[in-house]
Design a protein around this nucleic acid. Sequence first.
DNA 1: ATGAAAGCGCTAACAC
DNA 2: GTGTTAGCGCTTTCAT
Lengths: 351, 351
Amino acid sequence: MARRRQAVTIKHVAADAGVSLQTVSRVINDEPNVRSAMKARVQASIDKLGYVPSIAARRMSGSRSYLILAINDRDRTIADWTARQGTDWVDQMLLGGMLKCAEYGYRLIFELVDTHSDHVERELRATIAALQPDGVILTPPHSDNPLIVRLLERQRIPFARIGSRGGGAGIALVMDDESMARHATRHLIDLGHRRIAFIAGSSEYPLSQWRVDGWESEMRAAGLPTAGLVARGDFTYESGAAATRQLLGHPDRPSAIIASNDQMALAALEVARELGIEIPSQLSLVSFDNTPIVRFTQPTLTAVDQPVAETVSRAVEMIIKAQRGEKLPPQPVIVAGGFVERESTSAPAHG
Amino acid sequence: MARRRQAVTIKHVAADAGVSLQTVSRVINDEPNVRSAMKARVQASIDKLGYVPSIAARRMSGSRSYLILAINDRDRTIADWTARQGTDWVDQMLLGGMLKCAEYGYRLIFELVDTHSDHVERELRATIAALQPDGVILTPPHSDNPLIVRLLERQRIPFARIGSRGGGAGIALVMDDESMARHATRHLIDLGHRRIAFIAGSSEYPLSQWRVDGWESEMRAAGLPTAGLVARGDFTYESGAAATRQLLGHPDRPSAIIASNDQMALAALEVARELGIEIPSQLSLVSFDNTPIVRFTQPTLTAVDQPVAETVSRAVEMIIKAQRGEKLPPQPVIVAGGFVERESTSAPAHG
DNA sequence: ATGAAAGCGCTAACAC
DNA sequence: GTGTTAGCGCTTTCAT
């Protein structure tokens, strides 16, 4: 194999501009102590030759790598990709992360890491050693993994923990699950609903409880009952179906249901259909996450929008700031979600 | 900011094992001329210290970077991510590409490049200079961009061209669009359909024509008419709706329609509903691509499965082989697609 | 404000 | 088989 060398290096630029390597280095890193005339001359050579610094060489010399690593759980991600159920978590991560990285001249590298194995640490350490990223973005369930957090802390790499309320090192960011749940509940209350049920998600994820809390507090504030109105699922379709059957089997059945994610909402839709309950005229349905599928069901689903892209974008920003030693805002950073009204919600039948 | 150095380097391993750097290098690269006892000793030190070679240093020394770059069109990708219509092209690319890369100790880096701008070349050159990947995977419409192909050829980087039949340098891979279209057509013929219409895609993409060709040749082979049975769309929902109206407005309307992608199939579904034509009893519908949405429509759509993951996986494999100087199979490599029967196809009403 | 020299971690080339 | 040397492209000292 032919060895590939850098086509244009800092040497070529220095020679072309008739200055030292160091001066070129100063220009490309936008450092002080370069006269503007000099700077212009060097920049002209850079443009002329089409010079781009090598990340490898930069990293070698002990400087930044301009790489930010985004870590996702391997099993779950591969399962989602294979199932092709329309989950676009990864896409939204890339959307938020890559674009923000590009703004700062960084690059996002997406990696899968196996959470559940006992060698998480080794795996992550290997990835870091190989890539030497300037920062790491953790997503659930890694965000609260003490092994990972400790490792990153020891390596002194700035890292963001998405979906974590903090405690320990790292930059904690959460999407505002509680407010989003409150918003959804408020929407239904405003439509005239009083018996609003909630299908909770897996208790493995802290956000499941945050969502329940939001619903509960809004119900309380409106003086509405919550007893018997929670069913616990685990984010799967099957669990959503079971939860819905439980809720709709109730003698005084709810006129509205909020499901903690889209898969469970989909199940609720199907169960309602089976039972001959029409949506939205006889039952309103709100779903969580706003993944693509909610646009294609019939009726389309009113949904809470999980601000994944925005959150990752903020994470990137904060990592870069942290790396530069800038001051960070108080944490956890709370990212506001959205709410999209579609066809699955309306005033209750006998409001 | 504290400068981060590699925690464990080849030096530490060499010292620990009591050998030279070069011997360690030989072991980690699995090169010949190391006695197995020596190799074991070095490996023990590597494991003990948790050593992982630095990609940057490897690249610096003129060797491989173990990075493979996958390039997608920026505008289109961002539009897809933002629209959240369930397109999982990127996910499938990552699925096929990352897993195959991991098998060989490589890493896939996903990048966006702006096709339509006149500085494609500069942009791509910059990315290559920064990352120095060992290979590049091109997707449409980049695969047939002569500027890009020439650039990569000159840089002597192995590259794959997905969706290109070849001509010029690089490894050409296509999904077997023609066969897939034939398969879909055959499925409908076997069900008893005789008037089978086809909604073609944008002529900007060569695969649009390949799909038409497959349908046409299968129809011919079965002695069935094709005149007046093609409507041209451009892969958008709107164009699909217009095409469907045109086809169903025909006095002797088709009993089945094949749409060149899922968005247009979705439109066909909606138009049929508007016209009071029931699917599948009065009209069979087959869609192309098998993106997530076809699982959620009502009825669910029988669809041709575009083997994106498999194709990217093959591309990675061939790039690595090419880089090692191994012989490659004849091209274009043709990757077989799949076919998934769901609810939208059945025997025609008056068959 | 600019330049020169040293070194980052690794591998290719060559010596032994 | 194994060790030694040089150098990759860049940034960090430290001079000037």
